[in-house]
Amino acid sequence: MSVTFSLNGKPVTFDGPDDVPLLWAVREHFSLTGSKFGCGIGMCGACTMHLDGAAVRTCVMAVGHVRGRAVTTIEGLPTDETNPVHQAWNELDVPQCGYCQSGMIMATTSLLARNPNPTDQDIDQTITNLCRCATYIRIRAAIHAAARRA
């Protein structure tokens, strides 16, 4: 009934059932609310975090699955000039309502780690997060800008 993992570089222990979604464990037990609840079925990506550096949708991931592993949330990313994704997102003023953007940034950061110079096609295939404000034009531009900065 407890799960120990690394959350933004610090060891934490979740006291509860293994099958609680990681999203809610992080939001409610560790007070990190930057990751959002959007659909509950892993489809919209608002809940995206990194598991050992790779983007995962956490509204459908049991917390037990991350036992002993490293979870990073939007709060765990640097926001200074060392993070080209934040810089690009701010420079291009990407967010409108902003609700999906932490998930977008987590998905983008993960993409750029594996593919430092993604094509439009790579973006289309990888960034499947949803944005009802349709900020997609600025998201795409920001991904390219971040790739250039890195």
Partner: peptide
């Protein structure tokens, strides 16, 4: 924008 990109913006949720 800054609050909406670093996770600190507080929504109703």
């Amino acid at each position: 924008t800054a609050a909406k990109t670093n996770g600190s913006a507080i929504f109703g949720l």
